[in-house]
């Protein structure tokens, strides 16, 4: 359809939504960058403050620990669940339950109840007491146990999403490949290693990108479970500077650093995927998860 009205319609249809996104996200991001470079005149003073703040480095290391461990947990569990569901041609009801769980319970509701479970006089310690064990301070501010609680609760919440993404990837692998490998004498491990993993790579990369970014920008889990100071990560560090310390420009500098980390992670994952030969086109279906 190469007429003028058709082209006009298409231009509107493409650029109106994109302009809306730019107005809501790109423009604030840019103005945040400008504000972060302003300390009574253009300067890097805010960044220098952040880089010399011990709490910032503490938040960075916490952020990396949380992201790393919860990704490991989610992906090993998610892959296990996906393989099991796939191998047994999991009945769709079970798939539906596991898919819908993260939606079924809104995030904040889930976190609220997780907090009640983990409180010193909560249900977990109550259960431990009833089998004769002493309770632990699962949410004690600043303890490694608090960090562990954040990791486990995060994994609990999103493992179903990872399972779904990987299951979607598994279902695209033609069964003839497995039959051929079986006839060539490949055992279950070899089939997993040489058929499943290489062909699952696009799904793995997409899930890794989405979940990796989610883990880096983690905010509500930490805030609800331990409070901004209990297990500080970059988001809560910036939030605290903004809302409690009333240092908006320094807070913007910290959040720009977080955005840079996320951009770096995205670049690494996308680069890895390109090198392994995945097509960029395959990524669209993961955007809804």
């Amino acid at each position: 359809m190469k007429n003028r009205r058709g082209r006009l319609l298409n231009l509107c249809f493409l650029w109106l939504p994109l302009a809306y996104l730019a107005a809501q996200f790109a423009f604030p991001l840019a103005s945040g960058l400008v504000m972060s470079l302003n300390a009574g005149g253009p300067s890097f003073a805010n960044y220098s403050f952040v880089l010399h703040d011990r709490l910032f480095w503490h938040a960075c290391s916490n952020n990396l620990i949380v992201a790393g461990l919860s990704l490991c947990l989610e992906f090993s569990l998610g892959l296990l669940f996906a393989l099991l569901l796939h191998a047994t041609r999991g009945r769709s009801l079970l798939v539906e339950i596991s898919v819908l769980l993260p939606f079924l319970i809104p995030e904040i509701v889930f976190l609220s109840i997780a907090r009640y479970i983990l409180l010193p006089r909560g249900y977990l310690n109550g259960a431990l007491l009833s089998v004769g064990l002493d309770g632990l301070g699962w949410l004690n501010p600043g303890s490694w146990l608090a960090l562990l609680s954040v990791i486990v609760v995060d994994a609990w919440h999103v493992t179903p999403v990872v399972t779904l993404l990987l299951l979607g990837g598994l279902q695209t692998i033609p069964s003839e490949l497995y039959e051929a490998a079986y006839l060539d004498g490949a055992g279950p491990v070899a089939r997993l290693r040489y058929v499943t993993v290489p062909l699952l790579r696009p799904a793995l990369f997409a899930a890794l990108l989405l979940r990796g970014v989610d883990a880096l920008r983690i905010f509500s889990t930490v805030l609800v479970l331990t409070g901004a100071e209990g297990a500080p990560v970059l988001s809560t560090y910036a939030y605290q500077l903004w809302s409690d310390a009333l240092e908006p420009q320094i807070a913007m500098a910290a959040s720009v650093m977080l955005a840079l980390f996320i951009a770096a992670l995205a670049a690494v994952v996308l680069g890895l995927r390109r090198r392994s030969g995945g097509r960029a086109e395959t990524s669209w279906e993961y955007l809804t998860a």
Binding site: L18, L21, P28, L29, R217, A238, V256
Partner: peptide, 25 residues
Amino acid sequence: ALGLSALTATRLLPMIAAAMPLATI
């Protein structure tokens, strides 16, 4: 291609980096 890039960027955006300046705006 353009839409996918924009949507992916939106999906990866850190909330805190957009929300604080947005409050000012």
